[in-house]
């Protein structure tokens, strides 16, 4: 018979790695599965200034490297693997991996995170990496002295717009409403910044160009009027940075676990899902604050719950 893990964690971001740490320290037999590189979304961040204790060299990757090391030191295993299908209802949970493996576990923590929402307009996919970006730290310096349009009105959009002013000659925030949703203190910084301009009540309808972004069609959400914005001749291109929210990676769980209308997992007390022995941690959950610190907290709580569950009479 194949091995049965005490706990399998899907996703090696801050939530999954923290769950791994707490799980392994509770002497459980723990496996963390990650489909890409460890760390999740935080690895695109060059400066993690709000996670307590991460002061020196606080980049996303360095923080993750320390989490991975700490996790493995206590005996958690981290393996590459894309989970394609799950069977969570029974006492022994089954995970089916893309490479053909079948993994069994007594308990499961779902920590698969989220990815940036797309605009879903013509040209967006074609010009990703050709002027369209979802990662300011990755691509900002291509647009040094150029113009950038930053789409969205939440905290991320406005904070990234502020970051982009260090590179661009001008940053225009394109927002579908006539006021921002971002926190007041962040809004104030944006209104004070001379490089930031606003295009209110506007959405991007289409992105066009020849190999790189050369123009876009902007639609006024109130009047329906469409305007074409062309790249200035000097550079022949401009940047479009998109920060319009996130989509949770819950597709493979939708038949097993109840999701809310946005696709997030609603957990009850102590991060339990509606399936016994299955927990959710990090950005995948419906929650009010999605940060490394809240993901790490979720990881710790869910791992301790998983341990209690497999030790209990319920199991």
């Amino acid at each position: 018979m194949s091995k049965i893990y005490d706990l399998v964690i899907i996703g090696a971001g801050p939530a999954g790695l923290s769950a791994g740490l707490y799980g392994a320290r509770s002497k459980m037999d723990v496996l963390i599965l990650e489909r890409e590189k460890n760390g999740g979304q935080i690895v695109t961040t060059s400066d993690v200034a709000n996670y307590p204790g991460s002061i020196r060299e606080a980049t996303g990757p360095s923080l993750i490297a320390r989490m991975v090391e700490q996790c493995q030191e206590f005996g958690a295993k981290i393996e590459k693997g894309t989970v394609e299908k799950v069977d969570l209802k029974g006492k022994i949970k089954k995970l089916y991996i893309k490479d053909g493996r079948e993994i069994s576990a007594k308990s499961v923590i779902i920590a698969t995170g989220a990815y940036p929402r797309r605009l879903n307009v013509p040209g967006e996919k074609e010009f990703t990496g050709k002027g369209v970006s979802y990662c300011a730290t990755c691509d900002a310096d291509f647009f040094t002295d150029m113009e950038i349009y930053c789409v969205g009105g939440g905290d991320t959009a406005v904070e990234e717009a502020l970051f982009l002013t260090k590179f661009a000659s001008k940053v225009t925030i394109v927002h579908r409403r006539d006021e921002l949703r971002a926190t007041k203190s962040i809004q104030e910084k944006a209104f004070k910044n001379e490089k930031i301009d606003f295009l209110w009540d506007s959405t991007i309808d289409e992105i066009r160009g020849d190999g790189i972004v050369e123009e876009m069609v902007v639609k006024n959400t109130k009047t329906g009027e469409k305007t074409v914005i062309k790249a200035p001749e000097e550079f022949g291109t401009f940047g479009i940075f998109v920060f319009v929210g996130y989509i949770p990676n819950t597709e493979i769980f939708k038949d097993e676990i109840e999701l809310n209308d946005k696709g997030y997992i609603e957990t009850c007390q102590n991060l339990k899902t509606c399936v016994p022995g299955v927990y959710a941690a990090g950005d995948i959950r419906e929650k009010s604050l999605r940060q490394v610190i809240t993901a790490a907290s979720d990881g710790a709580i869910s791992a301790i719950q998983a341990e209690k569950y497999i030790m209990s009479k319920e199991y």
Partner: peptide, 9 residues
């Protein structure tokens, strides 16, 4: 690039 963390990973 220097600022691209996914690149370094």
């Amino acid at each position: 690039s220097d600022g691209c963390e996914p690149c370094k990973a």
